[in-house]
Design a protein around this nucleic acid. Structure first.
Lengths: 181, 181
DNA sequence: CCTCACATGTAATGAGTTACATGATTGG
DNA sequence: CCAATCATGTAACTCATTACATGTGAGG
């Protein structure tokens, strides 16, 4: 999948600016597909505008910079549908974190612990976000499936990592960003 | 992570040719990190040879083409260690399959079913491979962690997908490539 | 006879990231 | 006053993929 299709997908749900798309991809409802930087989002929108897949509405805001709100057009919806049918890759299970874990005896223990904890924090953060989202998505929708899948997979990862702490020679309770404080 | 580091990692375990590296990344013990094509593997090996990170041994085989068996050097091990400490990205949970699932009402049901089944087949295949591997990896090793993590995550995905069949409007039992026959 | 598995490589192409470039307003 | 958030965009660069190019031997 490319950034164009991702943007088109987001715009199929809601009008958005390049900036808002970036936020949605980083954190929001669309953070579980692919990553995208400003350097790919803005050119994608410009190109799609030229191709007639999206339209712009320039919003003048008080006390804030000019915002270009993009909307999907009928041609855009068609193009999205088309892209959806052409996506060939089923996604493979890949993880760079696991690569680091594989060579755990090659890295120094402090670093291993840091990597492990960062990964753990990320996963816990994701789980929290997913659980928050659950309230706002309607059951049976595409979003609900995405959330459910995410929840299942991320929980499993967290659970396995928690169980593996000792076998990796890591201290049992690191900082616990949740319960404490 | 780049292909160079991936190759270096594989060569840290065993001497291998470009061809064998490709196979290991496609299917074998090293299939859970990143993808790599011949077009990236061969140049990576050539470059690392020039940099002194690997050495070659040309094997003349009966009835088979010339094979270049690459081994990691001391400098290579150092470089790997270094790369391992510099890998910044914790891996995010991303899935293009979920993008397709999100727009399930935009694609035709036949296509959705096909995508779903392909994904399911892939996951089941992975699970089978992981279970096979379990016998040959020693407990407590990096490989064991990779296998365990993979098993946990892939099983969770399979289970959730199985449970979601009906809510996606898909037939309960498609072809069942396991039990039947 | 033809295709598959083995085996190595290059060049064009494509897609994205990083860093650069700019600028207003708000809150500490 | 400085940093962060909001907001848009470009250009150089990196990295990998795809397609091309070549060749053998085994098995159906």
């Amino acid at each position: 999948m490319n950034v164009r299709t991702l943007c088109l997908g987001i715009l199929a749900f809601e009008e958005a600016s390049g900036y808002e798309i970036k936020k949605a991809v980083e954190d929001g409802m669309f953070s579980h597909f692919i990553e995208a930087s400003y350097g790919s989002i803005y050119p994608a929108l410009t190109q799609m505008l030229a191709d007639g897949l999206v339209s712009v509405r320039e919003q003048v805001q008080e006390g804030k910079p000019l915002k270009k709100a993009y909307s999907i057009t009928e041609a855009g919806r068609k193009a999205l549908k088309n892209s959806l049918h052409e996506l060939p890759q089923q996604d493979k299970f890949k993880s760079e974190f696991l690569f680091q874990a594989l060579f755990r005896d090659q890295v120094d223990p402090k670093h291993l612990e840091a990597v492990f904890n960062e990964q753990m924090d990320y996963l816990c953060g994701e789980l929290a976000t997913i659980e928050e989202c659950r309230q706002s998505v309607e059951p049976g929708s595409g979003h609900a499936f995405v959330n459910g899948y995410g929840h299942a997979v991320v929980s499993a990862a967290i659970q396995y990592m928690e169980e593996s702490r000792s076998s990796l020679g890591l201290p049992q309770k690191p900082i616990s960003s949740d319960a404490a404080e």
